[in-house]
Write a protein that binds this DNA or RNA. Structure first.
Length: 103
DNA sequence: GTCGTGACAGTAG
DNA sequence: ACTACTGCCACGA
């Protein structure tokens, strides 16, 4: 059993780092994996510490990537073969129906 | 100990 | 499809 004394940050990074290539998780799913509903806290932590984890594999419940990082995430999704759903306006979103990773 | 902020989620119009 | 409002939790000042 992992010492529950671990910082919230360490746990978030651990979950994100455990997402396999070609898969994705919603912020709420990551929080749920930690036993919390702090989806917002996960995003806040990611913005400061996510630089060392595959943050692009963490998307919103709607399938949209992290705000202001859509183009950056797209490069990785295309390279990893992550299931994407495209709209007619060139707007894309991750197909969580197929890419959702559950621990 | 209180307030404000945030890479969110869900519901309603 | 969109915006608006509310609810949740963690962190810094």
């Amino acid at each position: 059993m992992r010492a529950p004394s671990e910082d919230f940050v360490s746990r978030v990074l651990d979950v994100v780092a455990s997402i396999p290539s070609g898969r994705a998780m919603a912020y709420g799913d990551v929080a749920a994996a930690l036993g919390s509903r702090a989806a917002r806290a996960v995003g806040t932590v990611m913005s400061h510490y996510g630089s060392d984890v595959p943050w692009w594999r963490v998307v919103r419940a709607s399938g949209h990537p992290a705000i202001d990082h859509e183009t950056r995430a797209l490069q990785h999704f295309r390279a990893e073969g992550t299931p994407l759903k495209w709209s007619r306006d060139g707007v894309y979103r991750v197909d969580l129906t197929a890419a959702r990773h559950t621990p």
